[in-house]
Every structure is written in C-alpha cells, then in structure tokens.
Design a binder for these strands. Structure first.
Lengths: 196, 196
DNA sequence: CTAGGGTGTTACCGGTCTGTAACGTCATGA
DNA sequence: TCATGACGTTACAGACCGGTAACACCCTAG
C-alpha cells in the first residue's frame, strides 16, 4: 500500500516533537543530543540520519514551532470569519493565555538570545520567521481598520515580546499581568485616531 | 600605608569586569571560566579564590551590572534636578540609546532566559533586581505627576524589554525602531488622563 | 524467499566544561 | 630577616558535549 499515512509515528517526527519541547523548556544549550534521542525513544545515529547537525535540528524545530503558531491565525479566521477586529482581540487573548500558561517565552526570541554568534545559521531563520509574524499582525491591524496599522502592530509586538520575557524574570505577577489592559487600551486609542 | 586605594586593579575586579563584558556579549553558557580568566589576565585558581563557583560569579556580575545601571538614574537627577518629567524623557532617550548602540539585550533578562532551571540561585537575584528597577520607574512616573503611574511604568518596561529582545531577533530596523515614538506617545496619553 | 532500507546498539573520538590539588613565586609588613 | 598571604602555573579529575564508525536487526516491497 503506497499511502504514506503510517500509524506509528516515525522516528524523525518523534525527534522533532521531542526536541521542540525540550528546547522550549530547557533552552537550546541546555539540552544535549543524547537527552533528546533518549526522550524520543530512539538513538543518536537515527537522529543524525535525519538531521545534518544540531544546528540543523534547531532550525527545523524553529520552523515547526512557527508552523504551529501559524495554525493559530487560521483559528482566528474560523472563529471570527471576516471580522478582523474580533480577530485582533482574539490575538490579544491568545497572547495573554501564552503568558499565564507557559512560563517560558517565545522560542525564536529565546534562541536569538542564546545563539549569540551573529553568523549562526539559525539567526537568519529567526529573523525571517519573526518578520513574517510581524507582517501578519500588521495586515490584521490594517484590515481591522486601524489607521496607523504598522505602529499599532509594532507596539503590540514589543509589548508581547517584553511580557514573555518579563514572565521569565519576575513571574506572572509582574508588569506582564497588565498586558491585556495595555493591549486593549492601545487598540481603543488607535481606533480613536483611525484614518483611511 | 593603610589607604585601600591601590593603583593597580586587583584581580578580583578585573575578573568581575571581564566576566560582565563576556557574559553580556556571548551569553552565560557561551563563556567558560578559562576564557574569562585568560581575558582578565589571570588564572582559574585566582578566580575560584574570589568566587565560590561560576554561579556565584554570575550573581556578582548581575549585581555589578545593576549597580552601574543605577548610576544612570543618579545622572538623570543631576541633569534635570527636581524635574521628574524631564527625567522620564531622559529615561526614554537612554533606553533608545541602549537599543541602537548595544545589540545585546538586558543582562538580567538574558540570564533569566538562559538559566532555565527555576531553582537556579541567580533567579531570585534577577527577580529582586528587576523588581527594584520597576519600583524606581513607578516612582519616577508618579513623581512626574502621572495618574496611572504603575500602568505607565509597566507599559514602558514591557516596551523596552520587548525592544531589547526584538533587536536581537530582527535587528534595529524592526519594531524596536519605533520605540521612542511609542514611549513618548504613551507619556503624552497618560498625562492627558492625569489625575491627583 | 530475498534484497534493501530504515532502525537500533555499542563503542569510540576529540574537545570542552567546572572545579581541585600541589607547588612555586613574589611583594609586603612586622 | 622572615613569615604571611595573594597570586601564578601545571596538571588533573570527572563529566558532558557533538559527531562518527561498524555492525546487527527487522520489516517490507518486490
């Protein structure tokens, strides 16, 4: 049978899933290849048959995580079809949920901080994915009828980025606790000054 | 002569200074003890005579960095004595300078992201120092006559934190480029809604 | 049945890491 | 002069790291 849908999850997928989870929880430099393969129920050789190196694995993990995050946006469209303003508010709620539930920040931002070498191959991937993320939020703001869509999107981006970092340094009771109020206030404010 | 002011910089201070710089540039896990001692022109034994462990060194570095940052606040008071609103604007300018000049974010935030173990001894120090930083900004906002001082201070904190992270993932041309406009806009907005 | 590809196992390489032991050097101060 | 203490040097321990080689296994497609 040539249907590719195998029941048992292939080692490559188990590795990718496990690595995402462990990188997220313990950081990239805080997790070794051996720990990943063991947690994934496989071994080092199999990992290196599917990924060129740890750096390659890191990049694939970042792409996979971004892909999952992308699915969120489709959920917004499904939940509020055509209503871009409602989708923007849904984005705020989703962001707030990330803050309280997660404890660890954005994988891409964390990776950018950990991988200090500016020539690291993951850096351009991080930049690429973050820019795509930004474009998406800008478009949503614009479609929601916000005048200065770029400025609102950038402000919300920085607020969320900062909140996700703040959670890790001072916890959920710190400044990030006010994230929703800040974001909603900004949206109201920008809608007030709306333009064509 | 029993005056403690020795001309030659003591090894402990050289180590502390060098470690701060290298931790900042390359991250905590990206720098080894050997590299620090070599750059400081000393050796490993001397380091371990002054610091209990690498974790201890990390903590001392964070405290020293926070101390330097504290000196900035005194500069604001000197430059604009009594004028708290001017000091708040000076804080915004200082923050913006950090963004364009540095390339690497806040040492405390970076450390919080790198040291994923919640029991790590540096974590409570980070939280302590970050909370002190927040209190300072809240006080400044309140003294500047802002009504919702806590909310403005928290918003500015998150914006800056996010901007310092964003610089590392997408560079200075990303959302962080609008930091000053965002911050100044917020201050104006909060002064508009000022209360007693 | 058979060949081959995906997988598992073990062992290993060279390097790096934190931290310590033992000893030698040197300046200072009594 | 001599003792003390700070500092430097070398070597090492023990662990972990990323990555590779060689070989055995087993399921499946043909």
């Amino acid at each position: 049978m040539e249907d590719g849908t195998v029941e048992r999850v292939r080692p490559r997928d188990r590795i990718l899933e496990t690595a995402q989870d462990m990188f997220h929880k313990h950081g990239i430099k805080g997790v070794g290849i051996d720990a990943i393969t063991e947690a994934a129920g496989t071994n080092k050789m199999t990992l290196y048959r599917h990924f060129d190196s740890k750096d390659d694995l890191i990049i694939q993990c970042l792409r996979a995580t971004a892909c999952k995050a992308g699915a969120m946006w489709e959920k917004f469209e499904v939940q509020h079809p055509g209503n871009k303003l409602a989708q923007l508010h849904a984005w705020v709620r989703m962001a707030a949920d990330c803050l309280t539930a997660d404890g660890r920040g954005c994988d891409m931002a964390n990776a950018a901080i950990e991988l200090t070498d500016t020539d690291h191959p993951a850096r351009r991937v991080i930049k690429e994915l973050k820019e795509a993320q930004r474009d998406r939020l800008v478009t949503l703001c614009r479609d929601a009828g916000i005048g200065q869509a770029e400025l609102l999107a950038d402000t919300l981006s920085l607020l969320l980025e900062g909140a996700r970092v703040s959670v890790q340094s001072v916890g959920t009771e710190g400044p990030s606790a006010q994230f929703v109020r800040m974001a909603e206030g900004l949206i109201v404010s920008f809608r007030g000054t709306a333009a064509g």
